[in-house]
Design a protein around this nucleic acid. Structure first.
Lengths: 134, 134
DNA sequence: CAGCATCCAAGCGGATACTG
DNA sequence: CAGTATCCGCTTGGATGCTG
């Protein structure tokens, strides 16, 4: 590792172009791995889904966050949006081919972590135990 | 997908046991994919590393955040800590076998996203272009 | 149904100062 | 060197109300 890893700038006030020259992939990575991003991408890996159905699949997400998450993912080319101008409106979201590849790698990580929970929980007990009440 | 995906509780005030029954892997996943977690795990995939060296490798991380991140990862059994009681103190951090497996899957995702940046950037231009200045 | 706009509490995360 | 403790601004993200 020659050059240091770099952080993203979601919380900084760097102009976007400065940031983009620095570490452009961080932002997309965060959209995907973020709190709601990972759940949304996972849910969409099951197939296309409408907005409110997605809200139900991604338990606990607020309208605002789901909307925000979907916009970010759509902008990054991970998710595509198909809006029918009917009444009532119907909008379907689905993963793009790129999104599907991202989802597969993400799910591989998620499933591995889920499968490792017994080890993780054991590690936690050991960690917490070896220092009384911390 | 039968049961809905569930969110974690880093930002909520649920008692831990309530959360644990709900979706225990979320927390660990966030430690790994989080802002500094992913960079820290990536850096450690290169080999063992001391605290301040890690700070340099993970560019932009504050002492507080690195410390916090390492504690969380250590508690989850992703990272191991080896402290020599010398003077000056020397502490080496390294990935556990579990951590290495997690890191490989995480890096697979990261590298894929990085390699896809041209497509992502193109998608962004297209998205931004199709709606004037947004 | 599918969203946007606004308000506001909570806690993330940086800066600083201090310890062993 | 390897951290911990404290302060505090700013972002995150939930709740509410409104639109087409």
């Amino acid at each position: 590792m020659e050059k240091p890893l770099c952080p993203e700038t979601t919380y900084t006030d760097l102009p976007f172009d400065v940031y983009a020259r620095t570490c452009p992939s961080r932002e997309t990575l965060e959209h995907v791995t973020g709190r709601w991003g990972s759940l949304t991408v996972s849910a969409l890996r099951e197939g296309p889904c409408r907005f409110n159905e997605l809200r139900r699949r991604v338990d606990g997400v607020s309208e605002k966050m789901l909307s925000q998450t979907l916009h970010a993912l759509e902008r990054d080319g991970i998710v595509s949006r198909d809006a029918q101008p009917t009444n009532p409106p119907r909008v379907d979201y689905e993963l793009t081919p790129l999104g599907r590849e991202v989802a597969d790698r993400l799910l591989s990580l998620i499933h591995f972590v889920e499968g490792s929970m017994p080890e993780v929980l054991a590690a936690r007990e050991s960690y917490d135990g070896s220092r009384g009440g911390r």
